[in-house]
Computed example of a mutant assay.
Amino acid sequence: MRIEILDLLPATETGKGPVIAFSGMSGRAWAQWCGSEVPQVGALVDVEVDIPDEVTHWVTVDGPGAMVSGDPGAPVRIRGVVAGVDEDSVVAARVGADIVLLEFAAPANSVQPGHDDKPMVGDSIEFTAARIDVYPYSV
């Protein structure tokens, strides 16, 4: 995913990079930077998005892919179309032009009544992540 760095907040935990505000094709959000070098505000960077926590609650929705959050530390709302469902708990979701891998909670841990433990290919889903991590890479 290609993002533009909009703002930086200093690291709050030892060994962690800064929290960044970014914008991309799917919206504007905050994320934990997981690169060895601190990015510059205004830089365009290719990143892999990681959702570190299991998805326990999701809904079926209509609308374009989105990755948005408010203030730093606020949950991130993510909307995308399920592109693949693995035998284990991993789901690939297309958010705009990019793929994000998600781990869904086991059925016994699911907090959403009336849903299977995972969505099906083609479902347009929305969920909230407590935070996201971004890892820079070069293409």
Rank of each mutant, 00 (worst) to 15 (best):
M1C: 14
R2F: 04
L8A: 09
L9Y: 01
P10M: 01
P10F: 03
T12V: 13
T12P: 00
E13F: 10
E13C: 10
G17R: 01
G17M: 09
I20G: 03
A21C: 07
F22L: 06
S23E: 14
S26Q: 13
S26N: 15
G27N: 07
R28T: 10
A29T: 12
W33R: 07
C34K: 12
V38D: 13
Q40N: 08
Q40K: 11
L44Q: 09
V45N: 02
V45K: 00
E48H: 13
D50Y: 12
I51N: 09
P52K: 09
E54Y: 08
H57L: 12
G63D: 04
G63I: 00
G65A: 06
G65D: 09
A66G: 01
S69E: 06
D71M: 04
D71I: 07
P72A: 06
I78Y: 01
V81T: 12
A83V: 06
V91C: 07
V91P: 06
R94Y: 04
A97R: 11
D98N: 12
V100Q: 08
A105M: 00
Q112P: 02
P113D: 08
D116T: 04
D117M: 07
V121Q: 08
V121Y: 01
D123T: 07
D123P: 05
E126F: 02
R131M: 14
D133I: 05
V134G: 06
Y135F: 15
S138C: 12
V139L: 13
